[in-house]
Amino acid sequence: MKVAKLARLDLDPDEIDRTTSQLAGMLEHFADMDALDLTDVVPMTQPYPLRNVFREDVVVEGLLRDEVLAEAPAAEDHRFRVPPILGLDL
């Protein structure tokens, strides 16, 4: 329930039952891995053997404001208009 709320997922009771048991299965799988002695295994942060991928600090023109704002649900004063923020809090 909490995970769904944090992720803003609107689930009906059936879906909650189904995903809860699926999540429980995943947690069991992680618990199996936790039981292994992995002290000598270096954590793999990425499947690719890459490090240090950079771009240079040079400006490239981006998107046009008016075109982007025309796609937005609401805009005002060259900005995106959104509902009051406090109402969105958890």
Binding site: V58, G62, L63, R65
Partner: peptide, 19 residues
């Protein structure tokens, strides 16, 4: 690669990553 600049007109330094 959008510009990092303070005080400009709103929403002129935007790109797909920023948005």
């Amino acid at each position: 690669a959008s510009a990092n600049r303070f005080g400009d007109e709103p929403n002129i330094h935007i790109d797909p990553v920023t948005l």
